[in-house]
Design a protein around this nucleic acid. Structure first.
Length: 288
DNA sequence: CTATGATGGAAAC
DNA sequence: TTTCCCTCATAGC
């Protein structure tokens, strides 16, 4: 579930639920017991997402300035979950890494974290180091597209691999990489340095657009309305052009969708619409 | 009901 | 390159 849009949604949801609240923190599973003990009784003051990383700032409950002394860094990885709810938290079940409970602006709220790749406390310096190793996130106002263009246009590796590198563009995962390349009519194996600056700029723009749709809808929806028919295994009906559609006909040309491993992940593409030298298979509208 | 694989990344080899 | 995290949606009985 978690590509970049999901983390921005979670950041907003966590702030809406527990922003400003003094929290009770615990680690029923025990693996974050020391960290939870440090956070227990402090105030959740800010949430922020950068790519697939979620940062949550906590201040001492009596700190009038509400300046974060501790930063909780979360990364959900492939199957971590952060569930947020109202009222009484559900009975503890399974491996619950972290539970936060507090009286939010709208009433009692709770948040349960399971199976994360990262759940750790960082200092301000640690947060700076984390940000330094992340590339621009198209969903952030401070994102600099030029950083993406510079890094991607210097890469000898395939553009399909470059898009997965979080230090090049933060927040793109395996679904978005496949879909944005299809929408651009780009052969995934074209080396980054051969894509061209102009097409990389367009790639950034379209990726930003797709992430914004994801942020708004909570769903990785990459198909234009007129193409939204037929199945997308793992997505809702018609959500994707190529992701997970191995062997199924391309929505535009009918050629069977191909798959291969790239960057240790399944890559999906249309060998016809994304043949070397091809252009965008349709006029992309910036609507959804 | 059980089995499988997945939108990720770090650590361990 | 392989393992781990130990969830959750989906496929299949």
């Amino acid at each position: 579930v978690p590509e970049g849009h999901t983390l921005h949604r979670l950041a907003a949801a966590l702030d809406a639920a527990l922003g400003g609240a003094v929290v009770t923190a615990s680690s029923p599973q025990g693996r974050f017991a020391a960290g939870a003990a440090l956070l227990d009784g402090s105030r959740l003051v800010v949430t922020d997402a950068h790519g697939k990383h979620l940062l949550v700032g906590f201040a001492a409950a009596q700190d009038a300035e509400r300046s974060p002394g501790h930063w909780l860094h979360l990364h959900l990885g492939l199957y971590g979950t952060l569930a947020i709810g109202e009222g009484e938290p559900p009975p503890v079940r399974g491996a619950l890494r972290l539970r936060l409970i507090g009286e939010g602006r709208g009433g009692p709220r709770w948040a349960d974290l399971r199976g994360p790749t990262a759940c750790e406390l960082l200092t301000e310096e640690g947060v700076a180091l984390l940000r330094a190793r992340l590339g621009p996130d198209p969903l952030r106002a401070d994102a600099d597209p030029q950083v993406f263009v510079d890094k991607a246009s210097g890469a000898r590796t395939p553009v399909g691999a470059v898009l997965m590198h979080q230090d090049v563009i933060a927040g793109v995962g395996n679904i978005y990489r496949a879909e944005v390349l299809y929408r651009a009519g780009l052969d995934p194996y074209t080396p980054g340095r051969e894509v061209g600056v102009e097409r990389l700029q367009l790639l950034w723009q379209d990726q930003k657009h797709l992430l914004e749709v994801g942020l708004r809808t909570g769903r990785i929806l990459t198909t234009e309305p007129e193409h939204r028919t037929g199945s997308s295994p793992r997505g809702r009906e018609g959500d994707h052009y190529v992701y997970g559609r191995t062997g199924m006909p391309c929505r535009l040309c009918g050629a069977p969708i191909a798959t291969a491993q790239l960057e240790a992940r399944a890559l999906y593409w249309c060998p016809h619409c994304q043949a070397p030298g091809a252009g965008p298979p349709f006029d992309r509208r910036l609507a959804a």
